[in-house]
Each structure stands twice: as C-alpha cells, then as structure tokens.
Amino acid sequence: MIVYVLAILLFLIGLYGIVVKRNLIKIVISLMIMEYAINLFFALIGYREGGAAPIHTEELGDNMVLFVDPLPQALVLTAIVIGLGTTALLVSFAVRIYEKYDTFDVRKIRKLRG
C-alpha cells in the first residue's frame, strides 16, 4: 500500500510544481514528474509478488499465475511514447518562446490577457 501512496505523492509534487513554479522549463519538468508518477503507479498495479517477466517460455508454459500482469506494462510503454511527444513539443515551444521574449519567466510572458 505504501508504494501506491508514494506514487500518488510524486504525482502531487508534479502538480505542485505546475501550479507554483514560474519558469517554463521547470513547468515542463513538473509535468514530466507527474507523467512518470503515473507510469510508476501503472507498473506497480501490474506487479505480482514473485512474478516472472510475461514472456512465454518452455519452463513456465501457459501458467498465467506466475507472470506479472503484462497489460499495464504495454500501457506504460504507450504512455511513455505519448509523454515523449508532448514533452518534445513543450520543450521546442519553450525554446521558441525564449527566442521571442528573451525570458523563461511566465510573469514576463504576458501578451495575452486572461
């Protein structure tokens, strides 16, 4: 149970970073922390005490109980790829914003009024 709580705590740290931090790059990093907390949580869900890697081999045969759950692992892989895409996009936008405004500080990037 404690590991789940720690993963959620990591998620909340990321959320805190997004809300509080003023630097574009730090916001991106917070978003990544949040994403990886979820990936960790996903991998923990699939974990089974003493389970083997979910690969079909001669010794283990078809006995599914000996495997860890493979589905969350597949989902984590997909989520990592999506995270890669969003992070690359965010970082490239941060670089472009730096070129336009000469700063990473969100307080100075205010051409749009809310």
């Binding site: 690359a88 970082v91 490239s92 670089v95 472009r96 070129e99």
Partner: peptide
Amino acid sequence: AIFITLAVLKA
C-alpha cells in the same frame, strides 16, 4: 528529427 530541431537548427 526532434534532436536536430532542438539542438542543432537555429531559428
């Protein structure tokens, strides 16, 4: 492509 756009290419 991501690496080139981020690291090598100028604006």
